[in-house]
Design a protein around this nucleic acid. Structure first.
Length: 813
DNA sequence: TCCTCCCGCCAAGCA
DNA sequence: TGCTTGGCGGGAGGA
């Protein structure tokens, strides 16, 4: 049994990639030709190893020669060591980088083909490897253990492993994803992030206790090595150490990527989850540090396999190392994979008919048997057909459309509530949250009829700790705006029913990957993902980073408020994908979503848009329509290309409306809008609250909930800097902001969201509401909301819904 | 200063 | 009992 030979092209590719300055692999020079007097350089050993990986020297004889030469080189090294002074010798040693596990793994992988012939088994002899690579066995174990976790190798006997290559990788990843879903890793991630967020405001809170309960007992959550059928697992030790082994850690680490959306996992979160599964009560620094060390080891190997890539996630608390999944996309299981676990405490067999996603679906949306709604060409045709029908309906003379702010808020709240319920497993009592709405029941958005037909998308981020993020954007063809609600686990089978709204799954495998027909009107809502795609030198990022205020002495509520004010500017800079390069980098982040037409609960007369539509200026109508699937219009994937959805959003919601919108609101007086004093702020109507609560089923129809006392009106003096940066608008820079801040009635320190009303210095004439009621800031060239308007006169008339998010940037090293 | 992770001790367990 | 395997954490290089 001999170590199999690696294909020449592969080894050269891998090694030259890692060592771009090395020579093309040719027949290596005989080591004997190396003059002994040559100084031992840090790269000489590496060059020799590269030569060793060359196929030309793969014959037994040549390998023997190489081995001889290696020993000679070692002798030379020792000799050199004797003759050199200590410092000189140390300097002559390979640098730390050149001895890194990642590079070693590259060299290791270069020895074996990615896809070995199934008929010919490849064997790995550890002694051989350690000798040829000149490393300690210990290091090889690190590599092999991680490879074992992916079933790329398996242990055959002492000192001997079988090389499987990447043949098993898709199956393994699929299995790991499934197990990860069943272990609710996504929820654990969310929980940790939520705890982190809350910890900012409650540093003395009983964090561990809550976290322990969220993780469940360590026994229950303990999971051992995930095996594949046909890949025998023969760990050297079958004691308790196995459950802490690098193999299991590696698998768990990979699971985190596979269940996350986006597939970025910070080391901190990963370590906490791994610790949490072991012994949460021992969550001390040293243990955390150790986990981090091991994760680095694993990450190095995974990076060498090109499964992950290191990035940095910058959020408000600083820059954190993280890794982004760059491996193959793991599609949802189409057939159950029988997994075997070596632990009795492992998850139940995965062959159960009800998958995690289905369970999620049922938990979330318990009714209506509709399930899959697969995006298919026929579906697109159907959508077009429906849209045509709707156009015909809408072409009838109607009155101008008014969009209710409560419609938006209702959606936001509904989504937030529903998903929070599911993800955080809120209690029923918590669900009785009395969330007051300060907004008018109908806040029309004055808008010029000359508004470009294809307007800005609207970004909406839920208020807190939900793992899904809706984005509302107009639908140019249909004239209806939609909330796109993305499921973090790429749910593809979820169908929901909710009073007044229907959520339609949009199972786009890659919603950002399809070229838009109207890309110029689509804008990026900058998110963490968006940031991650942004080059480090892009101005928006630095702008956002610079403008983030930081005051350590502020109180929690102040921080909340500050966050709510600061976030828009830093995160809602819309970004337009103007070239293919940027498009490419935006791929694969949001594989699924739900579309929620915002036609429900429109108020006032319908828009008379037949003529406008002909003129191409009024294609968006927020009118109720009655198509065969009323209320359910899948968003063509082409329009989703440039939409980035925030994924981490333990985020306050910050809604900014134009004063003109407010002016048109029947229940909000101008005095309120014009006032920046707390005393004069009127208590907002509770009708919107009742409307919303009824819609989400928290209270029966007819029951009225009084205006919520937890609503706080927070006057904000001219936050011109915030506003101007976030919107890019110049004509609101000097505006006043009246802000309503919503707190949870359960925990008043729990900031939910804030509603800000903008009043520019020069009031605009109230105008008829159009589809462009809400806008996201930014856009093409970072000012899409403005640049979309050709005349620029409508900017102040456009209501703006700013969705702040936690400051979080992802940068790649 | 902090991140990153090499390095090797040493314990568990196998042959 | 020697060897293999691998958990673990000190501490140093590097950013």
């Amino acid at each position: 049994l001999k170590t199999p030979l690696k294909q020449a092209s592969t080894s050269q590719l891998v090694l030259t990639e890692r060592q771009p300055d090395c020579q093309p692999l040719t027949t290596p020079p005989k080591p004997k030709e190396t003059p002994p007097a040559d100084p031992w350089t840090p790269t000489s050993n590496l060059k020799m190893l590269i030569s060793a990986a060359s196929p030309e020297i793969r014959s037994r004889e040549q390998r023997r020669q190489l081995s001889d030469s290696s020993s000679e080189v070692l002798q030379t090294k020792h000799c050199l060591q004797e003759h050199l002074l200590g410092d000189e010798y140390e300097k002559s040693q390979p640098s730390r980088k050149e001895k890194s596990l990642g590079l070693l793994c590259h060299k290791f992988l270069a020895r074996y083909p990615d896809y070995p012939s199934p008929s010919q088994k490849s064997y790995i002899c550890l002694d051989e490897v350690t000798e040829e690579l000149h490393v300690e066995r210990r290091r090889i174990y690190d590599i092999v253990n991680v490879l074992e976790s992916l079933h790329m190798v398996s242990r055959l006997a002492r000192n001997r492993y079988v090389w499987h290559g990447r043949h098993n990788l898709p199956q393994t990843l699929q299995a790991l994803k499934k197990v990860g879903e069943e272990n609710k890793y996504i929820q654990q991630i969310q929980m940790i992030k939520r705890r982190e967020y809350e910890h900012e405001f409650d540093p003395d809170g009983e964090r561990n206790e809550e976290m322990a309960s969220s993780f469940g007992s360590s026994e229950q959550s303990e999971m051992s090595f995930v095996e594949l059928p046909g890949v025998e697992f023969r760990a050297a030790s079958v004691n308790g150490r196995k459950y802490k082994s690098l193999r299991v850690m590696s698998q768990k680490f990979v699971m985190l990527f596979l269940v996350s959306t986006p597939q970025i996992v910070s080391l901190e979160v990963a370590a906490k989850i791994l610790i949490g599964e072991d012994q949460l009560e021992d969550l001390d620094k040293s243990k955390f540090k150790t986990k981090i060390r091991r994760l680095y080891d694993i990450a190095n190997v995974l990076s060498s396999l090109k499964l992950i890539k290191k990035v940095h996630v910058t959020e408000e608390r600083g820059r954190k190392p993280a890794f982004k999944w760059t491996g193959p996309e793991v599609l949802p299981n189409t057939q159950d994979i029988k997994l075997e676990a070596t632990s009795t405490t492992c998850s139940p067999p995965i062959s159960e008919s009800i998958t995690s996603k289905e369970q999620c679906s049922k938990a979330l949306f318990p009714s209506k048997g509709k399930q899959n709604f697969t995006r298919h060409s026929s579906l697109i045709k159907l959508v077009k057909s429906i849209e045509n029908d709707r156009r015909k309906i809408q072409s009838a003379p109607t009155s101008p459309v008014k969009i209710s702010a409560s419609t938006y808020l209702l959606i936001i709240f509904l989504l937030e509530t529903s998903f929070s319920l599911f993800l955080s497993q809120m209690t029923a009592e918590e669900m009785q949250m009395k969330c007051a709405l300060s907004s008018p029941e109908a806040v029309p958005k004055p808008e010029s009829s000359q508004q470009p037909a294809l307007s800005q998308p609207l970004g909406v981020c839920p208020a807190s700790h939900s793992s899904v993020s809706p984005v509302i954007l107009p639908h140019p063809q249909s004239g209806v705006s939609y909330a796109i609600y993305l499921h973090p686990s790429q749910a593809h089978t979820v169908t929901t029913y909710s009073p007044g709204f229907m959520l339609q799954p949009l199972p786009c495998a890659n919603i950002t990957g399809i070229k838009s027909n109207n890309s110029k009107i689509l804008n990026i809502i900058t998110t963490e993902e968006g940031d991650s795609q942004r080059g480090p030198d892009e101005p928006t990022k630095s702008l956002a980073a610079e403008e983030r205020p930081e005051t350590k002495s502020e109180t929690s509520s102040q921080r909340c408020l500050k966050r709510s004010q600061a976030l828009p500017e830093s995160n809602l800079i819309k970004r337009r994908k103007s070239d293919e390069e940027s498009l490419d980098t935006s791929l694969t982040f949001f594989p699924s979503g739900y579309l929620i037409p915002l036609t429900h609960c429109t108020h006032g007369n319908k828009a008379e848009c037949s003529t406008k539509e002909k003129a191409g200026v009024c294609s968006l109508q927020h009118t109720a329509y009655s198509s065969p699937i009323t209320g359910v219009i899948p968003m063509p994937a082409s329009e989703l290309k440039t939409v980035n959805i925030p994924a981490f959003h333990i985020t306050p919601l910050n809604i900014m409306l134009s004063p003109n919108s407010i002016a048109a609101a029947p229940v909000l007086s101008n005095s309120c809008l014009n006032s920046s004093s707390t005393s004069s702020a009127p208590n907002p109507s509770s009708s919107a609250l009742n409307f919303m609560l009824q819609h989400i089923g928290l209270i029966p129809a007819g029951v009225q909930v009084p205006a919520n006392p937890v609503l706080q009106h927070v006057p904000v003096s001219s936050q011109s800097e915030n506003i101007s940066h976030s919107s890019g608008s110049t004509n609101v820079q000097e505006g006043k902001v009246t802000e309503f801040t919503f707190y949870s009635p359960i925990n008043e320190s729990n900031f939910l969201f804030s509603l800000q009303f903008l009043q520019p210095k020069e009031p605009q004439e109230p105008q008829a509401v159009t589809e462009n009621f809400f806008r996201t800031p930014g856009g093409p060239n970072t000012e899409p909301a403005l640049s979309a308007n050709s005349d620029g006169t409508q900017r102040t008339s456009q209501g703006t819904l700013y969705i702040p998010q936690r400051k979080l940037e992802v940068s790649e090293d």
